[in-house]
């Protein structure tokens, strides 16, 4: 049976370190599929203007497109070129909850994330997401420094 590992990326250099660690793991395991995931922080319980609502579908498509072309596709291509089996996933939602959901849905056995290195609010957001993930995930989580 193929072992699956979810790699959570956030578009920062820490993601590279997470990928490097996951590659190392995959080589040791042997038959392994890497699921490269990017979660766009989103909540259904925020407040928006009518105009934002009207354009939301368009924005969502743009956000997915951006995450796919900037972060996920390059990572998946690089992994493929290095001889790994890899697949990309882009979702909206709460970062920790969604990463865990992706893991459960795909029957993956562990999650690898980088410790966020972004500045300011982003750092706090992703930092707290990482903590939440570590505490609530259904599978082991590795946080790469």
């Amino acid at each position: 049976m193929t072992t699956k590992i979810v790699i959570g990326l956030d578009g920062t250099p820490s993601g590279e370190r997470a990928i490097a660690f996951a590659k190392d793991l995959a080589e040791r395991i042997g038959t392994c599929e890497l699921l490269v995931a990017y979660v766009i922080e989103w909540s259904p319980f925020t407040f928006q203007t009518p105009e934002e609502n009207a354009q939301r579908h368009k924005r969502r498509e743009e956000e997915i497109e951006l995450a796919t072309t900037r972060v996920i596709t390059p990572a998946v291509d690089a992994l493929g070129a290095a001889g790994f089996t890899a697949r990309g996933i882009v979702r909206h939602g709460d970062v920790a909850e969604t990463l865990n959901k992706i893991t459960v849905e795909n029957g993956a056995s562990q999650i690898v994330v980088g410790r966020a290195s972004a500045d300011g609010i982003k750092k706090r957001l992703f930092g707290s997401s990482t903590q939440y993930l570590v505490m609530h995930a259904d599978v082991p989580v590795t946080v790469v420094n």
Binding site: I40, W42, N53, R56, H57, R91
Partner: peptide, 25 residues
């Protein structure tokens, strides 16, 4: 509450958001 929302629609305008926007008007 989102009990009937398709998870694949995450990122779209939710029922809550549409209600909140209308209420603020």
């Amino acid at each position: 509450k989102g009990d009937y929302s398709d998870p694949n629609d995450a990122g779209e305008v939710s029922h809550f958001q549409a209600l909140a926007t209308a209420l603020s008007g």
